[in-house]
Design a protein around this nucleic acid. Structure first.
Length: 224
DNA sequence: CACCAGGCAAGTA
DNA sequence: TACTTGCATGGT
């Protein structure tokens, strides 16, 4: 159902969510590097577990490119243990930091000064950074305009008939890009709001099949 | 006890 | 291309 009606509905849903739930103020990180670390650690992992791992890193003052570069794999893995998949995530963090040190002298602002397509290609070339992690870093770290697609986005919007469940990441992303005003604020808040309702409502309240698109009011109301 | 969380990459056919 | 599997802790 990729037509004009569903596209304006996508924006209406955003307006409704931001009005009822308020700005989410993402990303919850103090520095750009902390943001990137969080993005990698939260892959298929509950955010509460990521917070524990980040607290460990902060306690040791390891939220620093040169420090992370210097620490051994096993040391880092043990420190981020609560976030799960700690062995693989330790390698992923070190892969990112390696590029940061080699190509940008460890200065993340220099990496983020790349154009959006250049930055996206660079991030995707790093082993362990896929489309969602790359786009999260671009949007919330580098503050460039790109819509982040996650499991909640695909689940909620495909179940409501906006697009087929088997749509690829880029197809879903294009759908949102074509449906929304190209504003940083909207891309930022919309993804955060989707994660909010995904975590808090979608699982517990299986409202999804009760909300056909031809009853937009019922759909929007039932999200609450 | 089972299930799953703000994914990604490698292996198989 | 289309599945499947490994990676792992901690909350419900």
């Amino acid at each position: 159902m990729e037509n004009e009606k569903s596209r304006s509905l996508v924006y209406s849903i955003y307006l409704y969510l931001i009005k009822s739930l308020g700005p989410q103020g993402w990303w919850p990180a103090k520095t750009p590097l902390e943001m990137v670390i969080g993005a990698i650690l939260t892959q298929n992992t509950a955010w509460t577990n990521v917070e524990k791992a980040i607290r460990n890193l902060k306690r040791k003052r390891w939220i620093n490119a040169a420090v992370l570069h210097k620490r051994s794999h096993s040391e880092l893995a043990q420190t981020i243990r609560p976030s799960g998949y700690f062995n693989i995530k330790s390698v992923r963090l070190k892969n990112f930091v390696q590029i940061l040190m080699d190509q940008f002298k460890g200065r993340i602002e220099r990496m983020f000064a790349l154009s959006l397509p250049e930055l996206r290609d660079l991030l995707l070339s790093i082993w362990g950074i896929g489309a969602e992690t790359a786009d999260s870093i671009i949007l919330y770290g580098a503050r460039k305009k790109i819509f982040v697609v996650d499991a909640y986005t695909r689940r909620i919007f495909s179940r409501h008939g906006f697009f087929p469940e088997e749509h690829s990441y880029e197809e879903v992303q294009n759908f949102f890009h074509q449906s929304l005003p190209k504003k940083l604020k909207i891309f930022n808040e919309y993804h955060a709001l989707i994660v909010n309702i995904g975590k808090n409502f979608c699982r517990k309240v299986p409202l999804c099949h009760l909300c056909p698109l031809n009853q937009p009011k019922f759909y929007v109301d039932s999200l609450h």
